[in-house]
């Protein structure tokens, strides 16, 4: 007997009565979406910035290696995208386009149809996500309703920079992935 058959027959052999699958209500939030989203991102140690603030930060840092995969704002890449993501190891900044944002927790949905490399949001030193204000939703329930069953090979809810608290519960930003997250709401 294959292990699959073994496992399935073990389950069937129990002879359970099926229990109902509940329908899910669509819970909302009371707060206005943009302000709630902003607070959530800040709580996750990210920042919400406007285009001017972002441009200023960009000028001040003068990053040598920038990749852009967003069409909503006019910033240009300083390098062309390599074929092998390993070569992105010294990437300073990735500017990506978020498909929607969740006010209750700051999670932003990135669908790999908009990601030139799946590794991009993780391997970059700094991450900037451009998000349309009109694409904010109250909770994860509405976010999943909106995503529906769209087929993306890889999708990601990202809510902040890489972080850890594995040493004595002290929060440290920049464990493996991006050291910072900025969200430009447009």
């Amino acid at each position: 007997m294959s292990s699959k058959a073994f496992i399935l027959s073990a389950i069937r052999g129990i002879g359970q009565k099926g229990k109902p699958l509940p329908e899910l209500p669509s819970f909302g939030i009371e707060e206005e979406l943009e302000s709630a989203f902003r607070k959530s991102i800040e709580a996750n140690k990210g920042q919400v910035v406007n285009q001017e603030e972002f441009s200023e930060w960009l000028r001040a840092n003068n990053f040598p290696k920038i990749v852009v995969a967003s069409t909503s704002i006019p910033f240009s890449a300083t390098i062309s995208l390599p074929e092998d993501p390993h070569e992105l190891d010294d990437l300073n900044l990735a500017i990506l386009e978020g498909q929607l944002g969740v006010a209750e927790n700051g999670a932003i949905w990135l669908d790999d149809r908009h990601l030139p490399h799946r590794a991009l949001p993780f391997i970059t030193e700094h991450l900037v996500i451009v998000l349309l204000k009109s694409r904010l939703f109250p909770t994860m329930h509405q976010a999943y309703e909106e995503i529906g069953n769209q087929h993306s090979g890889f999708g990601l809810f990202i809510a902040g920079p890489s972080k850890t608290a594995d040493i004595e519960q002290s929060l440290v930003i920049g464990a493996h992935g991006a050291m910072s997250l900025r969200v430009i709401l447009v």
Binding site: S40, N105, A107, T139, S152, L156, F157, K163
Partner: peptide, 23 residues
Amino acid sequence: LGVFLRLLARSATGQPVTNYNSH
């Protein structure tokens, strides 16, 4: 997933969601 991701990180560490939730 909406139900579980709302519960998981809040229950685990008291944060609203884990920073990376990869599908």
